[in-house]
Amino acid sequence: MSHHSSNEVHPIGYGIFIFVWLGLVVLTGLTVVISGIHIPKLAVLVALLVAATKSSLVVNYFMHIKYEARIFKIILFMGIVTVTVFIGLTFFDVLYR
């Protein structure tokens, strides 16, 4: 095999997971509070931004993508780009119809 399988186990530490969880809870509180404030137009953007931050925490730490080989990051990147392209190009139709 051209790649050596990395079958060793790497513990990361309980503490960091709890820390990340606290961050996620705080962000959830934040997004609920912000939604109460009336900011037209920006509301969706802010909500999505908070959601994106939360998911990047989950992906990086809980799903340990931060510690994975480069190919895992490429796969994730391809997924995100695809999502953006599919939704983005469709906007050109619906927005200008």
């Binding site: 190009l89 050109f92 139709d93 619906v94 927005l95 200008y96 119809r97």
Partner: peptide, 10 residues
């Protein structure tokens, strides 16, 4: 019935 702009881009 797709928008003209989308038609041109595609």
């Amino acid at each position: 019935g797709e928008s003209d702009i989308a038609n041109i881009i595609f």
